[in-house]
Write a protein that binds this DNA or RNA. Sequence first.
DNA 1: TAGTGGTCTAGACCACTAG
DNA 2: TAGTGGTCTAGACCACTAT
Lengths: 253, 253
Amino acid sequence: MGTTQLDTVPEPKYWHLRTVLSEALDSEFSVGEILPNERDLAARFGVARATLRQALEQLELEGRLQRRRGVGTTVAPPRMGVAVESEQHAWPGAFGDAWQPIDCTAAVPPTAVADILETVHDEQVLTVRRSRVTHGQPVAAELLYIPASSVPELSGIDAPSGVARARAVLRELQRLELEGQDRAVELGSARAEDAKELDRLPGAPVLVVTTRFLAQGHTAALSVATYRADTCRLTFGDTGGVEIHHDAERRAS
Amino acid sequence: MGTTQLDTVPEPKYWHLRTVLSEALDSEFSVGEILPNERDLAARFGVARATLRQALEQLELEGRLQRRRGVGTTVAPPRMGVAVESEQHAWPGAFGDAWQPIDCTAAVPPTAVADILETVHDEQVLTVRRSRVTHGQPVAAELLYIPASSVPELSGIDAPSGVARARAVLRELQRLELEGQDRAVELGSARAEDAKELDRLPGAPVLVVTTRFLAQGHTAALSVATYRADTCRLTFGDTGGVEIHHDAERRAS
DNA sequence: TAGTGGTCTAGACCACTAG
DNA sequence: TAGTGGTCTAGACCACTAT
Protein backbone atom coordinates (compact mmCIF):
# COMPACT_ATOMS: atom_id res chain seq x y z
CA MET A 1 0.00 0.00 0.00
CA GLY A 2 1.13 3.51 -0.70
CA THR A 3 -0.73 4.90 2.28
CA THR A 4 0.46 4.47 5.83
CA GLN A 5 -1.37 1.69 7.52
CA LEU A 6 -1.32 2.18 11.23
CA ASP A 7 -3.48 5.27 11.09
CA THR A 8 -5.21 5.26 14.44
CA VAL A 9 -7.54 7.91 13.16
CA PRO A 10 -7.62 7.48 9.39
CA GLU A 11 -7.01 10.78 7.70
CA PRO A 12 -9.43 11.59 4.89
CA LYS A 13 -7.92 10.99 1.48
CA TYR A 14 -8.51 14.52 0.32
CA TRP A 15 -6.69 15.91 3.32
CA HIS A 16 -3.73 13.69 2.77
CA LEU A 17 -3.77 14.64 -0.89
CA ARG A 18 -3.81 18.31 0.05
CA THR A 19 -0.66 17.79 2.10
CA VAL A 20 1.12 15.86 -0.62
CA LEU A 21 0.20 18.42 -3.26
CA SER A 22 1.14 21.25 -0.96
CA GLU A 23 4.61 19.85 -0.51
CA ALA A 24 4.92 19.22 -4.22
CA LEU A 25 4.00 22.85 -4.87
CA ASP A 26 6.73 24.00 -2.51
CA SER A 27 9.44 21.87 -4.00
CA GLU A 28 8.60 21.13 -7.60
CA PHE A 29 6.58 23.99 -8.98
CA SER A 30 7.11 27.66 -9.45
CA VAL A 31 4.60 30.49 -9.52
CA GLY A 32 2.45 30.57 -12.62
CA GLU A 33 3.26 27.03 -13.63
CA ILE A 34 0.35 24.94 -14.93
CA LEU A 35 -0.56 21.74 -13.13
CA PRO A 36 -1.70 18.61 -14.96
CA ASN A 37 -5.44 18.58 -15.50
CA GLU A 38 -7.80 17.21 -12.88
CA ARG A 39 -8.53 13.95 -14.66
CA ASP A 40 -4.85 13.14 -15.04
CA LEU A 41 -4.04 14.13 -11.48
CA ALA A 42 -6.88 12.04 -10.12
CA ALA A 43 -5.71 9.05 -12.10
CA ARG A 44 -2.13 9.55 -10.99
CA PHE A 45 -3.14 9.54 -7.32
CA GLY A 46 -5.66 6.77 -7.81
CA VAL A 47 -8.67 8.70 -6.56
CA ALA A 48 -11.93 9.87 -8.04
CA ARG A 49 -11.93 13.26 -9.63
CA ALA A 50 -14.30 14.58 -6.97
CA THR A 51 -11.83 13.67 -4.25
CA LEU A 52 -8.96 15.30 -6.08
CA ARG A 53 -11.11 18.39 -6.50
CA GLN A 54 -11.74 18.52 -2.77
CA ALA A 55 -8.01 18.77 -2.21
CA LEU A 56 -7.61 21.42 -4.89
CA GLU A 57 -10.42 23.44 -3.35
CA GLN A 58 -8.57 23.49 -0.05
CA LEU A 59 -5.40 24.68 -1.70
CA GLU A 60 -7.28 27.33 -3.63
CA LEU A 61 -8.88 28.51 -0.39
CA GLU A 62 -5.42 28.86 1.06
CA GLY A 63 -4.34 30.94 -1.89
CA ARG A 64 -1.90 28.37 -3.22
CA LEU A 65 -3.68 27.58 -6.47
CA GLN A 66 -5.71 29.41 -9.02
CA ARG A 67 -8.19 27.56 -11.20
CA ARG A 68 -9.75 28.96 -14.32
CA ARG A 69 -12.39 27.18 -16.33
CA GLY A 70 -11.30 26.38 -19.82
CA VAL A 71 -7.69 27.15 -18.95
CA GLY A 72 -6.35 25.04 -16.15
CA THR A 73 -4.92 25.11 -12.66
CA THR A 74 -1.89 27.26 -11.99
CA VAL A 75 0.34 27.90 -9.01
CA ALA A 76 -0.79 31.17 -7.45
CA PRO A 77 1.63 33.92 -6.52
CA PRO A 78 1.89 34.77 -2.82
CA ARG A 79 -1.08 36.74 -1.57
CA MET A 80 -0.67 40.43 -1.89
CA GLY A 81 -0.82 42.59 1.17
CA VAL A 82 -3.67 45.07 0.89
CA ALA A 83 -3.59 47.96 3.33
CA VAL A 84 -6.90 48.57 5.02
CA GLU A 85 -5.96 50.61 8.02
CA SER A 86 -4.11 53.23 5.99
CA GLU A 87 -7.39 54.97 5.31
CA GLN A 88 -7.96 55.37 8.99
CA HIS A 89 -9.59 58.55 10.14
CA ALA A 90 -10.35 59.81 6.72
CA TRP A 91 -13.57 59.79 4.74
CA PRO A 92 -13.81 57.52 1.75
CA GLY A 93 -12.67 59.41 -1.32
CA ALA A 94 -10.02 61.37 0.60
CA PHE A 95 -6.87 62.14 -1.28
CA GLY A 96 -4.72 59.09 -1.91
CA ASP A 97 -7.39 56.53 -1.17
CA ALA A 98 -7.09 53.36 -3.18
CA TRP A 99 -10.62 53.20 -4.53
CA GLN A 100 -12.05 54.08 -7.93
CA PRO A 101 -15.62 55.36 -7.99
CA ILE A 102 -17.80 53.48 -10.47
CA ASP A 103 -21.19 55.02 -10.15
CA CYS A 104 -23.79 56.30 -7.75
CA THR A 105 -27.47 55.58 -7.47
CA ALA A 106 -30.24 56.17 -5.00
CA ALA A 107 -31.78 52.95 -3.77
CA VAL A 108 -33.47 51.28 -0.83
CA PRO A 109 -30.69 49.45 0.99
CA PRO A 110 -30.95 46.00 2.57
CA THR A 111 -32.76 46.18 5.89
CA ALA A 112 -29.49 45.35 7.63
CA VAL A 113 -27.93 48.49 6.27
CA ALA A 114 -30.99 50.58 7.02
CA ASP A 115 -30.84 49.47 10.64
CA ILE A 116 -27.25 50.56 11.01
CA LEU A 117 -27.85 53.85 9.25
CA GLU A 118 -30.96 54.39 11.36
CA THR A 119 -33.03 55.24 8.33
CA VAL A 120 -36.60 54.15 7.73
CA HIS A 121 -36.71 50.77 6.03
CA ASP A 122 -38.03 51.90 2.69
CA GLU A 123 -36.08 55.14 2.57
CA GLN A 124 -33.63 55.51 -0.27
CA VAL A 125 -29.98 56.16 0.47
CA LEU A 126 -27.17 57.14 -1.84
CA THR A 127 -25.25 54.08 -2.92
CA VAL A 128 -21.79 54.57 -4.34
CA ARG A 129 -20.10 51.65 -6.02
CA ARG A 130 -16.33 51.65 -5.98
CA SER A 131 -13.67 49.17 -6.92
CA ARG A 132 -10.14 48.68 -5.84
CA VAL A 133 -7.41 47.55 -8.21
CA THR A 134 -3.91 46.53 -7.19
CA HIS A 135 -1.19 45.50 -9.60
CA GLY A 136 -3.70 45.58 -12.42
CA GLN A 137 -5.96 43.09 -10.72
CA PRO A 138 -9.35 43.82 -9.15
CA VAL A 139 -9.08 42.95 -5.48
CA ALA A 140 -12.19 44.40 -3.92
CA ALA A 141 -15.66 45.74 -4.65
CA GLU A 142 -17.35 48.16 -2.31
CA LEU A 143 -20.82 49.47 -1.68
CA LEU A 144 -20.89 52.75 0.20
CA TYR A 145 -24.21 53.67 1.72
CA ILE A 146 -24.75 57.32 2.52
CA PRO A 147 -28.02 58.66 3.92
CA ALA A 148 -29.16 61.84 2.22
CA SER A 149 -28.96 63.58 5.58
CA SER A 150 -25.17 63.19 5.53
CA VAL A 151 -24.79 65.27 2.38
CA PRO A 152 -27.42 68.02 2.61
CA GLU A 153 -25.76 70.28 0.04
CA LEU A 154 -26.05 67.66 -2.65
CA SER A 155 -29.23 69.04 -4.19
CA GLY A 156 -27.21 71.77 -5.89
CA ILE A 157 -25.26 69.25 -7.91
CA ASP A 158 -26.45 68.40 -11.35
CA ALA A 159 -24.98 65.04 -12.34
CA PRO A 160 -27.90 62.68 -11.74
CA SER A 161 -25.83 59.50 -11.61
CA GLY A 162 -22.63 57.92 -12.80
CA VAL A 163 -19.06 58.61 -11.85
CA ALA A 164 -19.49 62.36 -11.72
CA ARG A 165 -22.28 61.97 -9.22
CA ALA A 166 -20.19 59.57 -7.16
CA ARG A 167 -17.32 62.02 -7.00
CA ALA A 168 -19.63 64.83 -6.00
CA VAL A 169 -21.09 62.80 -3.18
CA LEU A 170 -17.68 61.83 -1.85
CA ARG A 171 -16.58 65.47 -2.05
CA GLU A 172 -19.57 66.52 0.00
CA LEU A 173 -18.74 63.93 2.65
CA GLN A 174 -15.37 65.55 3.32
CA ARG A 175 -17.16 68.59 4.71
CA LEU A 176 -18.33 66.68 7.76
CA GLU A 177 -16.14 66.23 10.75
CA LEU A 178 -15.26 62.56 11.10
CA GLU A 179 -15.70 61.54 14.71
CA GLY A 180 -14.49 57.98 14.47
CA GLN A 181 -14.82 54.74 12.66
CA ASP A 182 -15.49 51.14 13.36
CA ARG A 183 -14.34 48.13 11.44
CA ALA A 184 -15.20 44.45 11.26
CA VAL A 185 -13.83 41.63 9.13
CA GLU A 186 -15.65 38.41 8.44
CA LEU A 187 -15.80 35.62 5.91
CA GLY A 188 -18.49 35.70 3.29
CA SER A 189 -19.27 34.43 -0.17
CA ALA A 190 -19.37 36.68 -3.18
CA ARG A 191 -22.79 37.75 -4.39
CA ALA A 192 -23.25 37.28 -8.12
CA GLU A 193 -22.69 40.98 -8.75
CA ASP A 194 -19.49 41.23 -6.75
CA ALA A 195 -18.21 37.96 -8.12
CA LYS A 196 -18.43 39.34 -11.62
CA GLU A 197 -16.50 42.46 -10.70
CA LEU A 198 -13.86 40.41 -8.91
CA ASP A 199 -13.57 38.02 -11.83
CA ARG A 200 -14.67 35.03 -9.76
CA LEU A 201 -17.61 32.65 -9.66
CA PRO A 202 -20.56 33.38 -7.40
CA GLY A 203 -19.99 31.97 -3.95
CA ALA A 204 -16.25 32.52 -4.07
CA PRO A 205 -14.85 33.17 -0.60
CA VAL A 206 -14.40 36.83 0.23
CA LEU A 207 -13.32 38.84 3.21
CA VAL A 208 -16.05 41.31 4.01
CA VAL A 209 -14.82 44.50 5.65
CA THR A 210 -17.60 46.58 7.14
CA THR A 211 -16.69 50.10 8.14
CA ARG A 212 -18.94 52.58 9.89
CA PHE A 213 -18.09 56.26 9.61
CA LEU A 214 -19.33 58.30 12.53
CA ALA A 215 -20.19 61.98 12.41
CA GLN A 216 -22.58 64.14 14.35
CA GLY A 217 -23.20 61.28 16.72
CA HIS A 218 -24.56 59.01 13.99
CA THR A 219 -23.40 56.61 11.35
CA ALA A 220 -22.89 59.02 8.48
CA ALA A 221 -21.77 56.40 6.00
CA LEU A 222 -21.40 52.66 5.85
CA SER A 223 -18.92 50.86 3.66
CA VAL A 224 -19.22 47.18 2.83
CA ALA A 225 -16.12 46.07 0.99
CA THR A 226 -15.62 42.54 -0.29
CA TYR A 227 -12.03 41.47 -0.89
CA ARG A 228 -10.99 38.37 -2.80
CA ALA A 229 -10.01 35.99 -0.02
CA ASP A 230 -7.86 33.86 -2.31
CA THR A 231 -5.50 36.61 -3.40
CA CYS A 232 -5.57 39.13 -0.56
CA ARG A 233 -4.01 39.46 2.84
CA LEU A 234 -5.51 42.43 4.64
CA THR A 235 -2.94 44.46 6.51
CA PHE A 236 -3.55 46.74 9.43
CA GLY A 237 -0.25 48.42 10.02
CA ASP A 238 0.69 50.68 12.90
CA THR A 239 4.28 50.80 11.91
CA GLY A 240 4.19 52.03 8.37
CA GLY A 241 5.25 49.97 5.42
CA VAL A 242 7.29 47.24 7.06
CA GLU A 243 6.90 44.24 4.81
CA ILE A 244 6.34 40.72 6.01
CA HIS A 245 8.03 37.94 4.10
CA HIS A 246 5.16 36.46 2.14
CA ASP A 247 7.04 33.74 0.43
CA ALA A 248 8.11 32.22 3.64
CA GLU A 249 4.79 32.64 5.31
CA ARG A 250 3.12 30.16 3.07
CA ARG A 251 5.25 27.33 4.22
CA ALA A 252 4.06 27.87 7.78
CA SER A 253 2.09 24.62 7.48
CA MET B 1 -40.28 22.06 -15.28
CA GLY B 2 -40.12 23.41 -11.82
CA THR B 3 -37.23 25.69 -12.58
CA THR B 4 -37.64 29.01 -14.29
CA GLN B 5 -37.08 28.62 -17.98
CA LEU B 6 -35.90 31.88 -19.46
CA ASP B 7 -32.60 31.82 -17.62
CA THR B 8 -30.27 33.56 -20.02
CA VAL B 9 -27.34 32.43 -17.94
CA PRO B 10 -28.54 29.37 -16.07
CA GLU B 11 -27.75 29.69 -12.39
CA PRO B 12 -26.16 26.62 -10.85
CA LYS B 13 -28.68 24.58 -8.90
CA TYR B 14 -26.69 24.72 -5.70
CA TRP B 15 -26.56 28.49 -5.85
CA HIS B 16 -30.27 28.77 -6.38
CA LEU B 17 -30.79 26.32 -3.55
CA ARG B 18 -28.57 28.41 -1.31
CA THR B 19 -30.78 31.42 -1.98
CA VAL B 20 -33.99 29.54 -1.37
CA LEU B 21 -32.69 28.01 1.85
CA SER B 22 -31.29 31.34 2.97
CA GLU B 23 -34.70 32.95 2.63
CA ALA B 24 -36.32 30.05 4.39
CA LEU B 25 -33.89 30.44 7.26
CA ASP B 26 -34.81 34.09 7.57
CA SER B 27 -38.53 33.57 7.57
CA GLU B 28 -39.28 30.09 8.84
CA PHE B 29 -36.55 29.08 11.24
CA SER B 30 -35.18 30.40 14.47
CA VAL B 31 -31.72 30.11 15.96
CA GLY B 32 -30.85 26.64 17.17
CA GLU B 33 -33.64 24.95 15.30
CA ILE B 34 -32.78 21.65 13.60
CA LEU B 35 -33.20 21.34 9.86
CA PRO B 36 -34.46 18.16 8.22
CA ASN B 37 -31.62 15.79 7.42
CA GLU B 38 -29.69 16.04 4.18
CA ARG B 39 -31.32 13.08 2.49
CA ASP B 40 -34.79 14.39 3.14
CA LEU B 41 -33.90 17.91 2.11
CA ALA B 42 -32.31 16.67 -1.11
CA ALA B 43 -35.41 14.63 -1.91
CA ARG B 44 -37.69 17.54 -1.12
CA PHE B 45 -35.83 19.81 -3.55
CA GLY B 46 -35.39 17.07 -6.12
CA VAL B 47 -31.61 17.18 -6.23
CA ALA B 48 -28.81 14.79 -5.40
CA ARG B 49 -27.49 14.87 -1.89
CA ALA B 50 -24.13 16.17 -3.11
CA THR B 51 -25.80 19.17 -4.66
CA LEU B 52 -27.79 19.90 -1.54
CA ARG B 53 -24.58 19.64 0.45
CA GLN B 54 -22.92 22.19 -1.79
CA ALA B 55 -25.62 24.67 -0.86
CA LEU B 56 -25.33 23.84 2.84
CA GLU B 57 -21.56 24.31 2.66
CA GLN B 58 -22.07 27.81 1.34
CA LEU B 59 -24.47 28.66 4.12
CA GLU B 60 -22.11 27.22 6.70
CA LEU B 61 -19.28 29.30 5.26
CA GLU B 62 -21.47 32.34 5.70
CA GLY B 63 -22.11 31.45 9.32
CA ARG B 64 -25.79 30.74 8.82
CA LEU B 65 -25.72 27.02 9.59
CA GLN B 66 -23.88 24.72 11.88
CA ARG B 67 -23.48 21.06 11.00
CA ARG B 68 -22.40 18.39 13.42
CA ARG B 69 -21.78 14.81 12.47
CA GLY B 70 -24.09 12.40 14.20
CA VAL B 71 -26.34 15.22 15.32
CA GLY B 72 -27.71 17.27 12.47
CA THR B 73 -27.81 20.71 10.91
CA THR B 74 -28.91 23.62 13.04
CA VAL B 75 -29.51 27.29 12.45
CA ALA B 76 -26.46 29.14 13.71
CA PRO B 77 -26.67 32.16 15.98
CA PRO B 78 -25.37 35.45 14.57
CA ARG B 79 -21.60 35.61 14.48
CA MET B 80 -20.09 37.00 17.61
CA GLY B 81 -17.97 40.11 17.42
CA VAL B 82 -14.48 39.37 18.65
CA ALA B 83 -12.35 42.38 19.47
CA VAL B 84 -8.87 42.18 17.99
CA GLU B 85 -7.71 45.75 18.07
CA SER B 86 -8.41 46.18 21.78
CA GLU B 87 -5.06 44.63 22.56
CA GLN B 88 -3.36 47.32 20.54
CA HIS B 89 -0.06 48.56 21.82
CA ALA B 90 0.23 46.05 24.56
CA TRP B 91 2.23 42.88 24.80
CA PRO B 92 0.41 39.58 24.75
CA GLY B 93 -0.40 38.59 28.28
CA ALA B 94 -0.98 42.17 29.41
CA PHE B 95 -3.68 42.67 31.99
CA GLY B 96 -7.16 42.13 30.62
CA ASP B 97 -6.12 40.30 27.50
CA ALA B 98 -8.57 37.70 26.33
CA TRP B 99 -6.19 34.77 26.02
CA GLN B 100 -5.55 31.79 28.25
CA PRO B 101 -2.04 30.38 28.25
CA ILE B 102 -1.98 26.63 27.64
CA ASP B 103 1.67 25.73 27.66
CA CYS B 104 5.10 26.71 26.50
CA THR B 105 7.76 24.73 24.73
CA ALA B 106 11.00 25.42 22.94
CA ALA B 107 10.93 24.31 19.34
CA VAL B 108 12.25 25.03 15.88
CA PRO B 109 9.56 27.14 14.21
CA PRO B 110 8.43 26.87 10.60
CA THR B 111 10.94 28.53 8.30
CA ALA B 112 8.39 31.23 7.55
CA VAL B 113 8.36 32.22 11.20
CA ALA B 114 12.11 32.01 11.49
CA ASP B 115 12.46 34.42 8.58
CA ILE B 116 10.23 36.98 10.21
CA LEU B 117 11.93 36.61 13.58
CA GLU B 118 15.30 36.82 11.88
CA THR B 119 16.56 33.75 13.69
CA VAL B 120 18.69 31.03 12.19
CA HIS B 121 16.55 28.38 10.58
CA ASP B 122 17.26 25.58 12.99
CA GLU B 123 17.32 27.76 16.08
CA GLN B 124 14.74 27.00 18.73
CA VAL B 125 12.35 29.70 19.84
CA LEU B 126 9.93 29.78 22.74
CA THR B 127 6.50 28.77 21.58
CA VAL B 128 3.55 29.67 23.76
CA ARG B 129 0.19 28.13 22.99
CA ARG B 130 -2.83 30.10 24.05
CA SER B 131 -6.52 29.81 23.45
CA ARG B 132 -9.31 32.28 23.46
CA VAL B 133 -12.75 31.45 24.75
CA THR B 134 -15.82 33.65 24.39
CA HIS B 135 -19.24 32.84 25.78
CA GLY B 136 -17.99 29.44 26.78
CA GLN B 137 -16.97 28.58 23.24
CA PRO B 138 -13.43 28.27 21.91
CA VAL B 139 -13.04 30.87 19.19
CA ALA B 140 -9.34 31.00 18.51
CA ALA B 141 -6.07 29.16 18.94
CA GLU B 142 -2.78 31.01 18.97
CA LEU B 143 0.88 30.21 18.61
CA LEU B 144 3.17 32.87 20.00
CA TYR B 145 6.78 32.67 18.86
CA ILE B 146 9.33 34.42 21.02
CA PRO B 147 13.05 34.31 20.31
CA ALA B 148 15.13 33.68 23.39
CA SER B 149 16.83 37.01 22.81
CA SER B 150 13.56 38.80 23.63
CA VAL B 151 13.44 37.39 27.17
CA PRO B 152 17.05 37.27 28.38
CA GLU B 153 16.13 37.07 32.06
CA LEU B 154 14.27 33.85 31.57
CA SER B 155 17.11 31.58 32.61
CA GLY B 156 16.41 32.42 36.24
CA ILE B 157 12.96 30.92 36.07
CA ASP B 158 12.49 27.33 37.08
CA ALA B 159 9.28 26.04 35.50
CA PRO B 160 10.57 24.02 32.54
CA SER B 161 7.32 23.97 30.62
CA GLY B 162 3.57 24.10 30.97
CA VAL B 163 1.30 26.94 31.98
CA ALA B 164 3.64 28.27 34.64
CA ARG B 165 6.41 28.58 32.10
CA ALA B 166 4.05 30.30 29.67
CA ARG B 167 3.05 32.86 32.26
CA ALA B 168 6.66 33.50 33.16
CA VAL B 169 7.59 34.10 29.55
CA LEU B 170 4.73 36.51 29.03
CA ARG B 171 5.66 38.34 32.22
CA GLU B 172 9.21 38.76 30.99
CA LEU B 173 7.95 40.14 27.72
CA GLN B 174 6.26 43.06 29.48
CA ARG B 175 9.66 44.41 30.48
CA LEU B 176 10.50 45.37 26.92
CA GLU B 177 9.34 48.63 25.45
CA LEU B 178 6.83 47.91 22.71
CA GLU B 179 7.69 50.02 19.71
CA GLY B 180 4.82 49.09 17.48
CA GLN B 181 2.86 46.29 15.98
CA ASP B 182 1.76 45.07 12.64
CA ARG B 183 -1.28 43.04 11.80
CA ALA B 184 -2.54 41.02 8.86
CA VAL B 185 -5.72 39.02 8.34
CA GLU B 186 -6.13 36.31 5.78
CA LEU B 187 -8.18 33.23 5.06
CA GLY B 188 -6.75 29.85 5.87
CA SER B 189 -7.79 26.35 6.69
CA ALA B 190 -7.40 24.85 10.12
CA ARG B 191 -4.43 22.56 10.65
CA ALA B 192 -5.37 19.31 12.34
CA GLU B 193 -4.08 20.53 15.68
CA ASP B 194 -5.95 23.82 15.63
CA ALA B 195 -9.07 22.18 14.29
CA LYS B 196 -9.17 19.93 17.32
CA GLU B 197 -8.83 22.83 19.71
CA LEU B 198 -11.51 24.79 17.85
CA ASP B 199 -13.84 21.80 17.80
CA ARG B 200 -13.91 21.68 14.01
CA LEU B 201 -12.78 19.29 11.31
CA PRO B 202 -9.38 19.75 9.71
CA GLY B 203 -9.58 22.13 6.81
CA ALA B 204 -12.32 24.20 8.37
CA PRO B 205 -12.10 27.83 7.25
CA VAL B 206 -10.33 30.09 9.68
CA LEU B 207 -9.29 33.71 9.80
CA VAL B 208 -5.58 33.85 10.44
CA VAL B 209 -4.44 36.97 12.26
CA THR B 210 -0.70 37.47 12.18
CA THR B 211 0.69 40.06 14.56
CA ARG B 212 4.28 41.19 14.79
CA PHE B 213 5.41 42.87 17.97
CA LEU B 214 8.32 45.24 17.48
CA ALA B 215 10.89 46.13 20.11
CA GLN B 216 14.51 47.18 19.95
CA GLY B 217 14.19 47.57 16.21
CA HIS B 218 13.33 43.92 15.66
CA THR B 219 10.39 41.57 15.71
CA ALA B 220 10.41 40.58 19.36
CA ALA B 221 7.44 38.25 19.13
CA LEU B 222 5.14 36.88 16.48
CA SER B 223 1.58 35.81 17.10
CA VAL B 224 -0.31 33.58 14.68
CA ALA B 225 -3.91 33.35 15.79
CA THR B 226 -6.52 31.26 14.00
CA TYR B 227 -10.14 32.26 14.55
CA ARG B 228 -13.13 30.16 13.59
CA ALA B 229 -14.37 31.85 10.45
CA ASP B 230 -17.85 30.42 10.78
CA THR B 231 -18.65 31.87 14.17
CA CYS B 232 -16.46 34.97 14.42
CA ARG B 233 -16.58 38.51 13.15
CA LEU B 234 -13.30 40.23 13.94
CA THR B 235 -13.78 43.79 15.12
CA PHE B 236 -11.27 46.59 14.98
CA GLY B 237 -12.88 49.40 16.86
CA ASP B 238 -11.63 52.96 17.17
CA THR B 239 -14.72 54.14 18.87
CA GLY B 240 -15.05 51.91 21.87
CA GLY B 241 -17.85 49.48 22.34
CA VAL B 242 -20.40 50.71 19.86
CA GLU B 243 -22.25 47.61 18.75
CA ILE B 244 -23.24 46.88 15.21
CA HIS B 245 -26.61 45.24 14.68
CA HIS B 246 -25.61 41.67 13.89
CA ASP B 247 -29.00 40.30 13.39
CA ALA B 248 -29.77 42.68 10.64
CA GLU B 249 -26.41 42.40 9.01
CA ARG B 250 -26.94 38.85 8.03
CA ARG B 251 -29.81 39.73 5.76
CA ALA B 252 -27.59 41.98 3.71
CA SER B 253 -27.63 39.33 1.00
C1' DT C 1 -28.62 0.50 17.36
C1' DA C 2 -30.65 3.96 14.46
C1' DG C 3 -29.86 8.19 12.43
C1' DT C 4 -26.84 11.94 11.30
C1' DG C 5 -23.29 14.25 8.57
C1' DG C 6 -18.54 13.13 6.20
C1' DT C 7 -16.09 10.77 2.55
C1' DC C 8 -15.66 8.56 -1.81
C1' DT C 9 -16.74 6.63 -6.34
C1' DA C 10 -17.53 6.46 -11.49
C1' DG C 11 -19.66 8.11 -14.33
C1' DA C 12 -22.28 12.24 -17.33
C1' DC C 13 -22.95 16.65 -19.27
C1' DC C 14 -22.17 21.74 -19.43
C1' DA C 15 -19.63 26.37 -19.89
C1' DC C 16 -15.73 28.39 -20.98
C1' DT C 17 -11.12 29.29 -23.35
C1' DA C 18 -7.81 28.98 -26.76
C1' DG C 19 -5.79 27.40 -31.06
C1' DT D 1 -12.92 21.99 -32.03
C1' DA D 2 -10.35 19.99 -28.32
C1' DG D 3 -9.38 20.45 -23.68
C1' DT D 4 -10.16 22.59 -19.31
C1' DG D 5 -12.59 23.21 -14.93
C1' DG D 6 -17.67 23.46 -13.04
C1' DT D 7 -21.94 21.06 -12.06
C1' DC D 8 -24.68 17.10 -11.09
C1' DT D 9 -26.14 12.35 -10.25
C1' DA D 10 -27.08 7.97 -7.63
C1' DG D 11 -25.33 5.32 -5.37
C1' DA D 12 -21.94 3.22 -1.26
C1' DC D 13 -19.68 3.06 3.03
C1' DC D 14 -17.68 5.25 7.24
C1' DA D 15 -17.42 7.99 11.77
C1' DC D 16 -19.84 9.91 15.06
C1' DT D 17 -23.78 10.91 18.44
C1' DA D 18 -27.55 9.94 21.02
C1' DT D 19 -30.76 6.62 22.89
